[in-house]
């Protein structure tokens, strides 16, 4: 058996600068990705891999790294008009749990309360004919309409807006922030749809109006600063477009889901 002599690594004997103790405690906290802020420090997902591909579930886990109280606070603080920017105060970092489930809850609450309102109005129009054994009247197509309407408004519009602003070179926000802002902004419609069960036309219009005002104010107040950073003044006109779109969606909610009124003696109404 032959031995080959290799040169020994002499750096070890050179002194302390070759091998040193080093603290890695701080560097763990700083290793969170820059795009999603301080997600890594919350520590709900202990062994998240550092770099994941777009198609893996782990890639999206940072956007769901949130706890219950935070989601609730983000939801109800959209109802309170405030001077501070929602993006800066609450969406740090932005999450996707809240927007998605806000929109899904909105779909279901629109359907549930709309069918409740319709059955109440049937009962009120003719209390004698509508015995408890009758099946409640409801229009099932409303569920698919609600799905299409809410998801297209709540997800497609912010993505298109982000793409458009990106094309114009405006805005320093991520698409997740846009979707989160938009999704949380629709939260107000959930209590509005509950209140719209009250079978009076004036009350319903009032509640829909309040909902439109609150969420419209919220969206415009938070999006206008982004639009205002553009060099071209014409970009700010997008805000008017968004308000018109928002009014259209409010009108759609009112007309499609809450147009059942008790009518005396006329069952077809």
């Amino acid at each position: 058996m032959a031995y080959v002599s290799i040169e020994a690594d002499e750096r070890l004997e050179e002194g302390p600068e070759g091998l040193q103790f080093q603290s890695f405690l701080d560097s763990d906290n700083r290793s969170s990705e820059p795009g999603v802020g301080n997600v890594g420090s919350r520590g709900y997902i202990p062994d998240r891999p550092g770099k994941t591909s777009f198609w893996q579930v782990e890639h999206y886990q940072p956007y769901f790294d949130i706890d219950t109280l935070t989601v609730l606070r983000r939801c109800y603080s959209t109802l309170i008009p405030s001077k501070s920017s929602y993006l800066a105060t609450h969406l740090t970092p932005a999450d996707l749990y809240g927007p998605f489930w806000t929109l899904t809850t909105l779909i279901f609450s629109l359907f549930v309360f709309s069918s409740l309102a319709s059955s109440i109005s049937v009962y009120l129009s003719d209390p004698d004919a509508a015995s408890p054994t009758d099946p409640l009247e409801y229009n099932f197509g409303l569920l698919s309409i609600a799905v299409g309407l809410v998801y297209s408004y709540g997800l497609a519009v912010p993505i298109l807006l982000w793409l458009g602003l990106r094309y114009l070179g405006v805005g320093e926000w991520s698409v997740v922030e846009t979707v989160a802002l938009w999704g949380y902004g629709q939260f107000v419609w959930i209590p509005v749809s509950l209140l719209c069960v009250i079978p009076f036309s004036a009350a319903r219009w009032t509640f829909v109006g309040i909902g439109f005002a609150l969420s419209g104010f919220f969206l415009v107040f938070n999006i206008y600063p982004v639009l205002a950073t553009a060099d071209q003044k014409a970009v700010r006109l997008i805000a008017i477009l968004l308000v018109l779109l928002h009014a259209a969606i409010a009108l759609c909610f009112k007309v499609l889901f809450f147009s059942y009124y008790p009518t005396k003696g006329d069952k077809s109404g």
């Binding site: 809850t105 279901f108 549930v112």
Partner: peptide, 27 residues
Amino acid sequence: IEQQRILLAVYPLLLFYFILAWMIIIQ
């Protein structure tokens, strides 16, 4: 799943089962 997030994980279940239960009610 940590305690603070149990409700977040359970809420979609409540939602989906409730919509099915609601469809049974208004059947």
